[in-house]
Design a protein around this nucleic acid. Structure first.
Length: 239
DNA sequence: CTTACGAAAGGCTGCGTTAT
DNA sequence: ATAACGCAGCCTTTCGTAAG
């Protein structure tokens, strides 16, 4: 395996000079830099990640925490995964996917062992146990969704409250006085699924503000029977 | 002042030595 | 024979310093 020592030898400089060429943390003469880069190219040198880690350098790995359950729509989530990987690569980062059943323990192990520089949380719940761990673990966290139990971490999401309000406004403007919202499976609400709850609440609140009758039903996503369900519930609603 | 070098440090592994 | 311990080596980064 080619190491920094081999590059230094080939370029006729010291090991530290090679290190500074790649980190750019100290000024070096252009000729020296060129010699080192040429030697590294010639020897196909890749810095040893283990040694960099040992010295406390950045790992350039991000953890993507996404607990995959029975109701997880993999076709949608795989897009999140790919887009995260593609964007991370733009900044020179790789992505480690944590998708196990014991999410908190996995996250703790990965962060505490110093394997990653930061964590991205998917499938964020209203009271998210992973978000609650963020401060204790002392590692940057970004949540896709707004965990209400830790508002100090960075959060990114669609504005579902605005979306719900706008949807009700549009229907109201068309003269509708009864609205039925077909949501996700009931278990998603029970577990505290972040955006489902926020969207349903926003719809319900805005309907109440406008004096519109609001009803909501849960369906099995992709189950195929929601139309029949909708029909019976609608009758019940009207009654 | 600029440039480059030497040495220490970091955590883990495996080998060699000593103690039981 | 086995257990426990100490130490060197792994590779890279970075601080302090010397040379020009």
């Amino acid at each position: 395996m080619v190491g920094i020592k081999d590059v230094a030898e080939r370029a006729g400089v010291s090991i530290s000079t090679v290190s500074y060429v790649f980190s750019g943390k100290r000024p070096l003469k252009e000729g020296t830099r060129d010699k080192v880069i040429a030697a590294a190219k010639e020897l196909q040198y890749t810095p040893n990640a283990g040694a960099q880690l040992l010295r406390g350098a950045r790992r350039h790995i991000l953890a993507l925490s996404s607990p995959i359950g029975r109701s997880t729509l993999l076709s949608i989530y795989s897009r999140f995964f790919f887009e995260t990987v593609i964007r991370a690569r733009k900044y020179g980062y790789d992505v480690l996917l944590l998708a196990g059943q014991h999410e908190e323990k996995e996250l703790e192990r990965v962060v505490e062992s110093g394997l990653v520089d930061g964590v991205i949380l998917l499938e964020v719940e209203i009271n998210d146990t992973r978000a609650a761990m963020a401060e204790r673990l002392g590692c940057p966290f970004v949540a896709i969704g707004y965990p209400e139990n830790n508002e100090s971490i960075y959060s990114v999401d669609i504005d579902f409250v605005q979306m719900g309000c706008r949807a009700v406004d549009i229907l109201a403007a068309k003269g509708h006085r009864e609205i039925l919202y077909i949501g996700t499976v009931e278990s998603e609400y029970r577990r505290g699924a972040n955006f489902h709850i926020r969207l349903r609440k926003a719809l319900s609140d805005q309907a109440a503000r406008r004096g519109i009758i609001f009803g909501a039903i849960a369906v099995f996503v992709g189950g195929g029977s929601w139309l029949g369900c909708w029909g019976s519930k609608r009758r019940a609603l009207s009654g």
